[in-house]
Design a protein around this nucleic acid. Structure first.
Lengths: 163, 163
DNA sequence: GGACGACATGATATCTTATAACGTGCCGAC
DNA sequence: GTCGGCACGTTATAAGATATCATGTCGTCC
């Protein structure tokens, strides 16, 4: 993951280059997402914004999100109805996400093999792809490790038939 | 796509084999999905069920959907908040979907290359996958063809600089 | 500098999707 | 016959997203 600061700074530069405006509201939403470092729902973002100077309504948040999505500065995780800051917004792309069901963490992948195979299988069927959603739910390495340890401890305390 | 009839029949057999109950409500939901042959939202299903003998409330529909999902008889299309009948429910699986933004149609893929590459990239990072969501939005072959034709006609009527 | 237009935001209402919580009825096992 | 598990009914509400119209802000062109 990238440092939140750096992410905002890059966004500033990109927007200037592209001639689009990273307004206060939009920057605020991006900051919240980057600071969280995990998927955050639109209404949670809204709540976080209430902490700031003024109260905002859903459309405000969704408009900011729409802008950030268009600019490739954030991604939407469809299966969670939530959003995350993009790790490498420099070039437009779709990404693959690994979503941990235990800790709620999300890792953004960029894997050529996956993308190539998806590309080829879609084209084969005459399909013209525009946007890809690739989300794998499961258990991340950290949480898998923790589980492992817990199970081992359990076994040590009461040795016997396992599972 | 498989004939709706056949899909229901297979579901009957599978449920019997597995010792689970394909009740009237559940069969009805499955029928509606299979007959539609396209993604259908939960509330649309509910409306369709109102045509039948009795009125149903959202929880009823969602419970039936949950059961059918567990049994692998249907899939959820996350990016559409909608459900489709599964083309080959015999063996449990995740699938890839091609979603046409023009006609709303959905094709279910089962591509080894995509699955293998996803599998390997997730395992590499120590991630233990449980469920995959792979959805490609774009234009299907049919709609792409139609568009092509329309554009050609346009060009014929008013020949000049294109786009 | 004032009028205009484009874009961004504010505010209210509403729609869509999904689930919580609790009650009732059916049916098989013991 | 009663007990327990499962499916379904019912009501309410949470959570996510958008439509609509009003207001504000800012640069540009005259």
């Amino acid at each position: 993951m990238t440092a939140p600061r750096a992410q905002i700074a890059r966004a500033e530069v990109l927007c200037r280059e592209r001639g689009v405006r990273l307004t206060d509201q939009r920057r605020r939403v991006l900051e919240i997402l980057c600071a969280a470092g995990r998927p955050v729902g639109a209404y949670e973002i809204m709540d976080a914004m209430r902490e700031g100077p003024r109260v905002v309504a859903p459309p405000t948040v969704y408009r900011a999100l729409e802008f950030l999505l268009e600019q490739g500065l954030i991604h939407k995780i469809e299966s969670l109805h939530a959003f995350v800051g993009c790790d490498h917004p420099e070039h437009p792309h779709s990404s693959e996400f690994l979503i941990c069901l235990e800790c709620g963490g999300v890792a953004e992948l960029k894997d050529d093999a996956v993308e190539r195979s998806l590309e080829s299988v879609t084209r084969e069927s005459g399909f013209r792809p525009r946007r890809r959603v690739v989300e794998v739910m499961g258990t991340c390495a950290q949480c898998a490790h923790k589980e492992e340890c817990a199970r081992k401890e359990e076994a040590d305390r009461s040795p016997g038939p396992v599972d």
